[in-house]
Design a protein around this nucleic acid. Structure first.
Length: 486
RNA sequence: GGUCUCGUCGCCUAGUGGCUGGGCAGGGCUCUGCAAAAGCCCCUACAGCGGUUCGAAUCCGCUCGAGACCUCCA
């Protein structure tokens, strides 16, 4: 099946066709590793995860997926600076070398980030490369020299800036975002750093070293400019080095359309003479309980915050994935609960397919429709809600017990493929219960006896005792089961 | 001020002109000590006002409302 995707470059949903038959090349703007990943980050990475899984499983392409790690920027420098409040004592003593401190801080959060990805079901084996910006300084410097040589950069007080005004004389600046350079709203936040640009619309390619900040030597136009890269340049350099330009799909949050991605396009074109990507895809933001997630609203959550509250990472994945990436997703506790129940219903259905008697009806047609509807919804700009709807509709039409000896394996095969994308279920028989302690079993039997003799007071006391040991009793008509309390 | 989304059942989400979408919650039943699990059934909404049309949640206009971005937040 062919995938169609909304392309911010054209503002239309377009059929996707790889530039190169061998594989689809995707670049995702990754995290800045100065803190634990928050829910918004997760949504931003779940989107390309579903994208690349769909490209592989439904469209049959090979995929090369690059997600960068930004380990040098204002915030990583700030937090690793000597005396920073955010320096975690677990990192040990701070070094006198700011580069060492930077590395310590960023490697810590990088590792945490990798753990978080695994936790929400993004497989490391699916990500071809996770390059760190600091490992590509030389590539960035080459690119900046190229841009300078071609006349679109100028040096000012030790920093190098991209000359947007000059670029606009030749090229369209505002490919992803309609920029009204003349009408920047007065009072809107303007980058307040002390670097001097000729125009506010210019952006920095290379920042001159400041006191006690990490820096790299750099020579451009026979000038020595010790400093560090600007934010946008890293993606241009890494995309070029690891995927080659132009590549197929570039992903990121909507906030990155401008200036980050716009500048990336301009830089790469100015320095490499090539377009960056044929598709630019942006995921919408996440809100929490109807409000923008922010520290000041007190609704700012990292993944580990939610796990500490006892939430299941697979429920978090399912709730986020079960929303179209291009629309604002409202993360609520009630919504997570809904998603959790819906997910478990499907899981229950899958377990049922491994047990009980077979049915005799023929559901080949419904199976075929499920396959068709599920995958075609995904192929339509990754409409996961519609795809999941097809699954529930199927389950309603065809109870697990009704599936025949032919339909069951067919369903399991299909749900396996579906799960290769959704990634929240276990396609296997119901796991054996953990060994239940003998005393709990005995208590349960006593309770059943008490109940049978209608001594309900005693039965309730015993239920409480069982509960105190972490188990619950569920009665059915003429038997009972013991389950571990969640 | 500029650019752009969006207002669908209690909540979340599909749906680019006609066929009462799905999930969760709620109600009923299978099953009567209590509770819980599972399954089945029920639950006809499209911000407002005009217009186009045989027919509009869906197209057009206006109004009201919500939100995002506008120089380093995914």
């Amino acid at each position: 099946m062919k995938l169609s995707l909304y392309n911010t470059l054209t503002k239309k949903i377009e059929p996707f066709e790889p530039l190169n038959d061998a594989e689809v090349r995707i670049y995702s703007c990754g995290p800045t590793v100065y803190d634990y990943a928050h829910l918004g980050n997760l949504k931003a990475f779940l989107f390309p995860d579903i994208l690349q899984r769909t490209l592989r499983i439904v469209c049959g392409y090979r995929v090369k997926w690059v997600m960068n790690i930004t380990d040098i920027d204002d915030k990583t420098i700030r937090d690793s600076a000597i005396g920073s409040e955010r320096w975690n004592p677990a990192f040990g003593e701070q070094s006198l070398d700011p580069k060492v401190n930077l590395k310590v801080l960023t490697s810590f959060y990088e590792q945490e980030f990798r753990n978080d990805l695994a936790m929400i079901g993004i497989k490391h084996s699916d990500i071809s490369i996770m390059p760190r910006a600091t490992d590509f300084i030389a590539d960035m410097q080459d690119l900046i020299r190229n841009i300078h040589d071609s006349g679109y950069a100028y040096i000012s007080e030790g920093s190098v800036y991209f000359d947007v005004a000059k670029w606009r004389e030749k090229e369209h600046y505002g490919r992803l975002f309609a920029i009204d350079v003349e009408h920047f709203k007065s009072g809107v936040r303007i980058d307040a750093d002390e670097y001097s640009r000729e125009h506010v619309s210019d952006f920095v390619l290379w920042k001159a070293v400041k006191d006690a900040e990490p820096f790299w030597d750099f020579t451009v136009a026979e000038q020595q400019l010790p400093g560090r890269p600007g934010w946008h340049i890293e993606c241009s350099a890494m995309g070029h080095a690891l995927l080659g330009l132009p590549f197929d799909i570039h992903t990121g949050g909507v906030d990155l359309r401008f200036p980050h991605h716009e500048d990336e396009i301009a830089q790469s074109k100015a320095g490499y003479g090539q377009e960056t990507a044929q598709f630019w895809c942006h995921n919408e933001f996440l809100e929490v309980e109807g409000k923008k997630m922010s520290k000041s609203f007190g609704n700012f959550y990292t993944l580990r915050d939610l796990l500490d509250k006892g939430m299941d990472p697979m429920d978090i994945r399912f709730s986020m994935v079960n929303a179209q990436y291009g629309s604002v997703f409202n993360f609520t506790e009630f919504g997570l609960e809904s998603a959790s129940k819906a997910r478990k219903r499907v899981q229950e259905y899958i377990y049922s397919c491994f047990e009980g008697n077979l049915g005799h009806d023929n559901h080949a047609e419904e199976l075929h429709r499920l396959k068709q509807d599920f995958f075609s919804a995904l192929c339509d700009d990754l409409h996961m809600p519609r795809a999941i709807e097809a699954l529930f509709t199927f389950m309603k039409m065809c109870p697990a017990q009704a599936l025949s000896h032919r339909d069951r394996p067919a369903f399991l095969e299909l749900i396996h493929d579906i799960n290769e994308i959704v990634g929240v279920w276990t396609i296997a028989p119901r796991p054996e219960m953990d060994e239940i302690p003998k005393e709990v079993k005995e208590l349960a039997q006593q309770r059943w006896d008490a109940k049978a003799s209608k001594d309900f007071t005693k039965a309730d006391v015993l239920r409480k005792e069982i509960s105190a040991r972490g188990y619950v009793i569920k009665d059915s008509k003429d038997s009972y089961t013991i389950l571990k309390e969640e």
